[in-house]
Design a protein around this nucleic acid. Structure first.
Lengths: 148, 148
DNA sequence: TTTCGTGCAAACATTTTGCAAAATC
DNA sequence: GATTTTGCAAAATGTTTGCACGAAA
C-alpha cells in the first residue's frame, strides 16, 4: 500500500460526508488527480487508470472529473486546445505557464492574484468566484531546442 | 453604406497585403468581429452573417476566424464552455470579466498585465507570447436579480 | 484565366447521456 | 436490499477537412 496523501484523505472525507461511494476506479482517478502535477487530460487519466483497471471507460473518468469539479475539489484548466485538463492538487485557482511547443503546464505562484481579484471586484462590481490566469509561450528547454 | 471603421480598414489592408481575397462573406464576418464587443461565438457570428447571406456556411465562419487568428488580427477567447469566442477589436491579449449567469464578457483594462508578463518571463525563463487572464463571477445586474 | 474562397457533406474529436448490470454502503 | 456507479453504446456538440463549383483578382 502506498503512503497516504493528506489532500487525498481530504477529498475522500468530503465524498463520504456527502454520501458518494468510493469505488476502486474513482479512487484511482483521485490518486492521479492529486498526485500529478501535469494537469492531465481525461485521456491521460484514462490511460493511466487503465493499467490497473483495463475495463474502465472514459465515461467514468469524465463523470469523476465533473463530480470533483462540482464539489470544488478539482480545477478545470482550459488551454484552448480543445480538451480539458484537470488539477486536483490545488483546488483554488492559480496561474499557469504553458509551453505551446512541448505542452508542458507549470504552476506559477509568484503573482499577487489576491490583489488582482480585489482590483477587479472594486472596479467592476462583479462578485468574482474564480479566475484563470495563463501565460503561453516557449519554455527554456524548447527555446534552446529551436536554435538547432 | 455604413461609415468606415479604422480597425476594419487596418485588417483589410493586411489582407490585401498578403493577397487574401475580399469576399462579401469575409467582409461581413470582419465587420461583426471588429464592431461587436460581445466576444461572439462562431454560431453567433454565423446567425448574424446569415441575415445578409442566407447561404453562408459555418465552415466559412470557422475558416475566416482561423485566418484572422493566424494573422494575429483576432483573439480566440476560451471560456471553458466548450466553444470558442473571438475578439477582433483588440488583437492583443487583455483581461476579461465574465458573468457565469448571463454569459456577458466584458473587457477589463485596469490591470498591469505588462508587469505581470515581465514577472513571469523573469521568474520562469519562458519566452511568453500571449496570455489569457479571465475572471469569472456574477455581474452586478445578475447579483441583484438573484436576490429576488 | 488562374487561383482562392465558398458551401456542402463527411469526418473528427471531445464530452454527455441512457440504460442495464454490477458494486457499494 | 436500496441506491449509486460502472461500462457500453449512442448521441450530442463543436470544429476541421476534402472537394467541386463559383467568384475575385
Amino acid at each position: 500500500m502506498t503512503h497516504s496523501n493528506p489532500r487525498l484523505e481530504q477529498i475522500l472525507h468530503r465524498l463520504r460526508e456527502r454520501d458518494f461511494r468510493l469505488t476502486p476506479q474513482r479512487l484511482a482517478v483521485l490518486r492521479i488527480l492529486v498526485e500529478s502535477k501535469e494537469h492531465p487530460t481525461v485521456d491521460q487519466i484514462y490511460e493511466q487508470v487503465r493499467r490497473d483497471f483495463p475495463m474502465v471507460s472514459r465515461a467514468t473518468i469524465y463523470k469523476t472529473a465533473n463530480l470533483l469539479k462540482s464539489l470544488g475539489e478539482a480545477l478545470e484548466v482550459g488551454v484552448l486546445d480543445g480538451r480539458s485538463r484537470y488539477d486536483g492538487n490545488k483546488p483554488y485557482p492559480h496561474p499557469h505557464v504553458i509551453c505551446t511547443r512541448c505542452k508542458k503546464i507549470i504552476d506559477f505562484e509568484g503573482l499577487p492574484t489576491t490583489d488582482l481579484v480585489r482590483e477587479v471586484i472594486e472596479k467592476t462590481g462583479f462578485q468574482v468566484e474564480t479566475h484563470q490566469i495563463d501565460f503561453f509561450g516557449t519554455c527554456p528547454q524548447c527555446c534552446e531546442a529551436e536554435q538547432n
